[in-house]
Design a protein around this nucleic acid. Sequence first.
DNA 1: ATCCTTAAGGCGAACGTTCGCTTAGAGAGG
DNA 2: CCTCTCTAAGCGAACGTTCGCCTTAAGGAT
Lengths: 348, 348
Amino acid sequence: MFKPVTLKEVAAKAGVSYQTVSKVINNKAKVSPETEQRIWDAVAELNYTPNYSGRSLRQQRSKTIGYTWEPSPQDQANPILDEFLQSMFHAAEGKGYYLLSFPFHTEEKKLLDTYRELYYTGRVDGFVLSRLNYGEASVPYLLQRNIPFVAFGRLEEDDHSFPYMDVDGARGIAQAVEHLIELGHRKIAALAWPDDSRVGNNRLEGYFSGLTKAGLATDPRLVVRGEGTAEVGSEATGHLLSLPEEIRPTAIVSMNDLMAIGAMQAVRNAGLQPGRDIGVTGFDDTPTARYLTPPLTSINQPVSAIGKNLMKRLIELLETGSYPEPKCELVAPSLVVRESTAGYRPAS
Amino acid sequence: MFKPVTLKEVAAKAGVSYQTVSKVINNKAKVSPETEQRIWDAVAELNYTPNYSGRSLRQQRSKTIGYTWEPSPQDQANPILDEFLQSMFHAAEGKGYYLLSFPFHTEEKKLLDTYRELYYTGRVDGFVLSRLNYGEASVPYLLQRNIPFVAFGRLEEDDHSFPYMDVDGARGIAQAVEHLIELGHRKIAALAWPDDSRVGNNRLEGYFSGLTKAGLATDPRLVVRGEGTAEVGSEATGHLLSLPEEIRPTAIVSMNDLMAIGAMQAVRNAGLQPGRDIGVTGFDDTPTARYLTPPLTSINQPVSAIGKNLMKRLIELLETGSYPEPKCELVAPSLVVRESTAGYRPAS
DNA sequence: ATCCTTAAGGCGAACGTTCGCTTAGAGAGG
DNA sequence: CCTCTCTAAGCGAACGTTCGCCTTAAGGAT
């Protein structure tokens, strides 16, 4: 391919041993100023670039972080992927680290094998995980082998066995609930996920706590569970709107934007106007949210901050051997109010 | 970190020289079946994993491909990123290649420097570029240094100086135009991009050719240019709808979905119904498209096929030294018809 | 004069591979 | 019985670094 310039050539040009050149380059040198200058000149003149393989072979570290993620279905762009990736490798760059991405395998064994191979071949020094769910096999697998990693998301509410950062989903939904109550809503329904979703359960918790905190009763009939798709959101909302007047909700809190989109469709189908007649909120603040009719009130996650921080901490773990405190951290999302919760006019 | 298992340990266990183990592992061996079995047993027992740095140092290749991309603004998710990345590293995996992603620098010198560093340190063997535009400095930079790369997108219509795959944007827009003509539209407008966009110009060309082919006259007053945002789409459409009756368009072809979203808003603001009164089409088939009211007719790019193919070809280039024919390839996008072009009732 | 310290830089070794040449031994052919 | 060929495996070298110890010379203190 290309003729690599090596330490030896630089050394020859500068009239020193090649090990001395190495020392100068790595700032570990005891050298006279003149020699140092000669060496730097030679480096510049030959356009010397230290060879990565040689370096990592010697140092036994790859300065590379592995990351994989579950691909999104076609109708549902991953709203945070771009931002998350960008924030991570920007944080990594300054320290000389890069991000290696690799295929996500749904088959568990294959996925774990990929982790194993990447780590034990020395291609990566550690991993970033994301979107964890109950029973995620990767976590114990990596922990058991002492493979360094950090996660965006957690497994159990109070599990501090591995370093992570996560969005306080309960807090976010609670904010949405408070916002609706402030607008005058009293009967608020929730579109929730199946109860095998950790993230879903956490968010739903915020729904209950938000209501309770405001002194409102919770009603199991107002909580509908299903896959987080527009279709499910629409059907569930149709059902909610058909409830008898005295319990029929005037607002709907969804655990993600997609369900909220379905909800708004169902509201319109029922001849009602989202926002004015029925308040609707989402979660994720997908780019789509602002282009819906009406624009959707949603909850935005501080993705960049999380990516940057996770990377910074992982690198610190790799370089110092210990993870900085706090090992686990929750960050608050922020409510973005749009017209889907504006202009509510209580019927009574 | 971890105690790596080396060839020598395997060799000791199998009672052969370590070079022989290497040969067996790489299938370059002339060894007796029994010895081979002994070696494989030892490999399995010790859980041997060949060291990546050692290998790539010796072979002078990293089996890694670099990729960077311009981050999307927050309100505008990159509709193809996930699919493109996934398709690339799935195609790469089988051949033992992985994808290294790194920060995109808007500052040209810094970007080129990153390319240079990654290549000359031997961290990557080549690159994938995407979203090229006129005067893209990376292309000549890489060509001049003989750094291997492939591109998603081209620079000039008939430039075959580097290998690429691209979507035939003109063809896609022409399809949209044909579709509208078939529905009975005769006055069709275009929301185009500024003329410094190669992609935009290419797509716009399809608008003209589509009209011409159907024997319809083109009218410069029906072509509005601007940044590809919803705001611009909306304003431009407002302007188009205020044109005198005899030239006022009944359909609007946009160069991307975002402008089409704006267009539909403007149509509704004018008291008209997108689809029935004014046909609207987009480009990109973003996930948003199907959740708009009404769902947006758009043009879908075969992203996965492109990613897979590009990667396959780049690897072939790297391993054989020559790029497979055809060096440059255009692929046709497909029109996805939805309600924004359904139910048109000519006023006359 | 002798000893010690310090600055400046040399040098051998090792990180884990793969490549290509060499060699030992067995069997075949004359 | 000698030579040739072939097979199975060994062996030295090299890929480009970094690490830690060693050497040398100069200078200062005693």
